[in-house]
Structure formats: structure tokens, C-alpha cells
Design a protein around this nucleic acid. Structure first.
Lengths: 271, 271
DNA sequence: ATTTTCCGTTCTGTATTGCCGAACACCGTT
DNA sequence: AACGGTGTTCGGCAATACAGAACGGAAAAT
């Protein structure tokens, strides 16, 4: 469970049980209410004894993964999580390269820009630069998103072979999120063909009402698509001309990412 | 170890060893080289058998805390770390309130703005909005910084009682970072008195050569100082007039944080 | 091509140790 | 005052996490 790897969900031969239980606790608390969770509630949720859960929680608090709000022994996400996320971001070469580019694109377009990694055909957003104004929806980082209802996801799908794209589509099931969502494989293939032609992908309220996105891919030095950037805004701000211009802009910045990664775009041939 | 709690570094009565070892691995890999670390190196570093370390690593990979770069079994920080950091940030009421304010202050001033939580007198930066231009120094999040060489730290110290501030100063030792660092307790007290008068703190190359910061505190509804925001730029960009103006600006935005937290600044009395 | 060396992986036994349940202590209610 | 609700501590059993050696494979050295 928990954002398992590629397609081979091998349930791992030898693994450490107490560590797995501890990480379950972290996930539980982080996904829990903002006010925190008390011990007994946590113990009930994971189905363990209070004493065992307490010992694990103490270890997690010692390491800063969790903290207890004073007064009242409720467990909350700790600051080490912020530290680790920051460190992981800082050590990721893709984020290091992409972040200034995202910031520039956000400044030029006034939109929220995100960068996704290609994780076996699925988009995993790993960084975000919010545009001005309120944040419409909190877009989570670090998890696989649905590939067929996001511009970054469709842009990545368009770079896969027909066989691979079909496999990913079947695996995730082309679930519907809005009335605009593409739910039929044939439609999706047509859309991917279009994306290949124009060089960027759109998401026209396919994931959420009123939200419009434009995405384009970037490549490593083998010419393999390793991710995509996308610009997100509200639908009402988008005219047709703007979509076309925005598409060109996003492609330009995606190409810049490719360039700074010393990557190259191969002529499309063996998809 | 590892950003332990307040002042009572109680090494915790009952704690889970295997979890602690696992979290040590996470820290090791995250702090390791960007290219990743192989199993044997990790096992040697933590002084455990290969098989035990392997089982732990597998668990961590299962949960996305670590990942292995293909090809070659080298362990790298996983995307779950980014996800957890993002979630912890999103669920933190202070960050939720502060982020738009940081962004606005960054836009107005063109500087990098950070927000620190008051962690028993120490500043712990928990969010950051980078200004335009290159990032000069990567400022880590989620760990205690030295209180006497950062504007946010000194601003927080200035809100403590004389006794508390002295205790913190003795505890961290007033170590020197640059020739401008304040290393004498008497000097520090004078500085804190000045900060109380003008309402903001500065860091004039006291932590790093060429770096200038301005910081101001904000408060909860009890009137307790719960943190500070700071603006960071290069020294050469700062004239005396600008420092004064920037101070006022930072105070204004810090007050806005106080306001949105439904906090209040108490008249200084019983420090 | 053959050897050598190193790394990752698997296996099995052992004893470490993490888990459970019960009892205790501590609020807040009722 | 008695109660349900906490978080905490304490033994005892058994599960299990660890170490070590042996296997397999790949790359480097000869």
C-alpha cells in the first residue's frame, strides 16, 4: 500500500514489521485532523495495544516526525517532516533545475505552476509555485495523480507508446471526475494524438469544475520523457487565444527544463 | 539527537529500537550524496548487518520514504518525504496563514521571506518564499537555528524574559559565525534592548558574509510570541534608509500575521 | 577468457525485544 | 464521591528482528 512502486507490487519478501507500523502511524496522524489525535484514538485506528503504540509514538516524537501540542497530549505532524521534505526537494536535481523556471513562468503568466515526474506513466507532482491570489485547491505533492484528467498526465501519456499508454489507462480505469473527463480509451487516444501534434496538453475542467490547465513535457539526455510542467488557472480567465499563447509559453519553459537537464527531445518515431 | 525536544532531553523511557534505526537510515540517506548510497555503505555507516539493514530499507522503500534509482541499487530520498512535508505544511495553521503574507512581502520587497516558529526560544524556520534571483544559500527548514545570529532568532529572544534569554544564550553558547557575530552576553542584552525599542531585529552579516536580514515577531491570542518572520537579502543592497523602511515593512506584515491568527501584542511589561 | 573481488540477496538459528494485557495514576464528568 | 475517560508503567511470553555464513551474479583485474 501507500503509493507502491511501478507495476510490480511485490509485497516484499523480508520487511520490518515494527517500522511499517510506525510509518502507518505517521500517515495516520498526518492525514488526521489539524487539532491532532490522542493516543487512544490512534491505538484504536491501527488496532494495536496502547502500550505498543505509545512506545512507537514516543520514538517518532523523539525524531521529530510527530510532536505533542502543549497542553494536552494530542499528536501532530512534527517539524522533521518539513525538514525532510525540504531536504529531499533540495537534493533532487530535477527540482533544483525546475524551481527557478517555475517561478519565472508563474511570474510571467500569473498562474500556479507545477512540475511532475513521470512515474511509470503516472504524473507525480513534486514541486509547485503558487501564483498570486488565493490557492483554489490544495494540490498535494508526492503522490501519483490520475494521468487522464490532468494536463501534465496527458502530456506524459502522449509520450508513451500506444501499448504503454493503453496499459496505464486500463490500470487506472479512466475514472470520471467531471462531465468533461475522458473516460473512453478511443477518445483518449485521439486526444493523445492531438497533443502530439500541438506539443502541449490541456485539461479543460476534466479534473475539477472551473479549473483549466496546460502542460508540456521535458526530457533527459536519452530523450526519455521524465516529466512535465503545467500551468493551472480558472477557466473563466482563458480565451482561446490565451490557451494557444499559454501553450507556447509552457512549451518554451518545458524546453528550458530539458535544456538545463542536458536533455534532448527526440524526433517522434518509435512511440 | 535529532532536534530533540525542549530543554528536557529525556532520553525517553520505552522506545522502539528498530523504528529508531529505520529513521536513522532515512536521515543518513537524505543527508547523503545526491547520487544515492548503496546498501553496503549504509550498513557500514550505521554499523548493522547487511541483512537487517536491507529489510529496513525495503520497508522504507515500500512506504516511499526512500527509492532506488534505476539502474543500480542506490538508495535515494523518496517522494513520500515530499508528500509528508507538503501535508505537514498544509495542515499547519500558522503556515496556512503566513504563506500568502510571505508571498506578498516577498513581492513588495523582492527579498526572500521566511517564517520561524518560536521553539522554546530558538527559531525554527518552517516556510520560505524565495525572492527573485538566485538562491544564495539554501536555508534549511524544520531545524533549530542559532538564535543569536539570525534576525528572527534575536527578535524572538527579545520577547523572552531576561532570565529566559540568558538561559537560551548559555545553552547554545553564543558561538561565532562571522566577525560580526555577537558572542558576549552583555552585548546581546544591549542588542535585545535595542530590538525592543525599534520593534524589529537585524542580522548584519552575523551569520554569513554578505547577508543581511530583518525580522519581527508575531503573537497568539494570549499575547505570547509564537514566531517571527524575516526578510533576507545581500548586504550591498541595503542602505540605512532602506533598513529602516524594511523594518517598518516587516513589522507591518508580522502584525498582519498576528492579526490573522487572532493574536494580540501585549504592552511590554513583565518580560 | 579466467580469476578475483565485491556487492546484493537468501537462509536459518538465536536471543533480543517488541508486543499484549492488566494494573496504576490522573484528570474531567456525572 | 464514584465514574468513565485518559496516559502511563510493569512483567512475561512469544514473535521477530538481528547477525552470520553461504549463495549468485556482475564487474574489474590479471
Amino acid at each position: 500500500m501507500t503509493l507502491q512502486g511501478g507495476f510490480v507490487t511485490q509485497s516484499s519478501s523480508t520487511t520490518v514489521g515494527s517500522v511499517a507500523r510506525a510509518l502507518d502511524l505517521v500517515e495516520l496522524v498526518v492525514s488526521g485532523p489539524d487539532v491532532g489525535m490522542p493516543l487512544s484514538e490512534i491505538a484504536k485506528a491501527v488496532g494495536g495495544s496502547k502500550s505498543a503504540v505509545l512506545a512507537t509514538l514516543r520514538t517518532l516524537v523523539d525524531f521529530g516526525y510527530l510532536r505533542t501540542e502543549e497542553p494536552g497530549p494530542k499528536y501532530l505532524p512534527g517539524m522533521m517532516l518539513i525538514r525532510l521534505g525540504d531536504l529531499a526537494s533540495a537534493h533532487d536535481p530535477l527540482i533544483a533545475v525546475a524551481r527557478p523556471i517555475l517561478a519565472q513562468l508563474s511570474a510571467e503568466s500569473g498562474l500556479t505552476i507545477r512540475v511532475a515526474r513521470n512515474d511509470s506513466g503516472y504524473p507525480v507532482f513534486i514541486d509547485r509555485v503558487d501564483g498570486p491570489g488565493f490557492v483554489l485547491f490544495h494540490t498535494p505533492l508526492g503522490i501519483r495523480e490520475l494521468p487522464h484528467v490532468s494536463s501534465a498526465g496527458k502530456a506524459i501519456l502522449a509520450e508513451l507508446s500506444d501499448k504503454e499508454a493503453t496499459a496505464v489507462a486500463r490500470e487506472c480505469g479512466l475514472v470520471s471526475r467531471t462531465k468533461n473527463s475522458i473516460t473512453k480509451l478511443g477518445e483518449l487516444k485521439k486526444e493523445l494524438e492531438h497533443i502530439r501534434k500541438v506539443g502541449f496538453a490541456t485539461d479543460d475542467e476534466e479534473d475539477a469544475q472551473g479549473i483549466f490547465c496546460v502542460g508540456a513535457t521535458f526530457f533527459d539526455h536519452f530523450g526519455r520523457c521524465i516529466g512535465a510542467i503545467s500551468a493551472t488557472g480558472v477557466k473563466t480567465d482563458m480565451t482561446l487565444a490565451q490557451v494557444s499563447n499559454l501553450g507556447k509559453l509552457v512549451i518554451k519553459f518545458a524546453d528550458q527544463v530539458t535544456h538545463e537537464l542536458h536533455g534532448r527531445k527526440l524526433a517522434r518515431r518509435a512511440r
